[in-house]
Amino acid sequence: MSTGLGDNEVISRVLQGEQGAYAELVNRYQGYVFTLVLRMIKSREDAEEIAQDVFVKAYRALADFRGESKFSTWLYTIVNTTCITFLRKKKLEVHSLDNEKIFEVADSKDSGFRANIIEQKSRVNMVNEAIAMLNPDDAEIITLFYKAEQNLEEIARILAIEANTAKVRLHRARARLKEKMEKHFSEEVKNIY
């Protein structure tokens, strides 16, 4: 249930000892955080655990949020560092090549069936699948820009890079997304590109 309060007001209440108010922030941002984590980690089970960890870390460090940036920007910084730590720890092979291989195998096994399924898929699903094929860095920057509504300065702050570097990385990520879409969804893409 939404209280209609702004993020900073909810945070003040939590800091004053009203722990239950934190649920409002969790409800507000769980979709964004989970999407971002899932696009980097690619496993639902791990993503749920990491997203939970992000909210716990954010709660514990809440006194350090000084309101200099949006709460979401601060929260996504925790998402970024937590995901990077997880990927380093697990040394997961989440490179896009793996996903490409899966798709290539699927193509060779039953291309007719796949074509049928693709026809039924909405274009939005196609974009989601193409993003899932990107490497974590590209998927992250695209999600931050388009879904998490962060501008380039905010993305730069989250990723601890320069705004210009963020801009270049966004351009590259979009170019790679286009390549994936053209390669794996050529029929659907014909109507766009």
Binding site: Q19, A23, Q30, L38, Q52, V56, R123, V127, N128
Partner: peptide, 20 residues
């Protein structure tokens, strides 16, 4: 438009409860 309109993924129903 497509990039902006894609839906957010949602965690399990118990997510908020687990965090709390």
């Amino acid at each position: 438009q497509l990039l902006r309109s894609s839906d957010l993924e949602q965690p399990s129903m118990r997510f908020t409860k687990n965090v709390m």
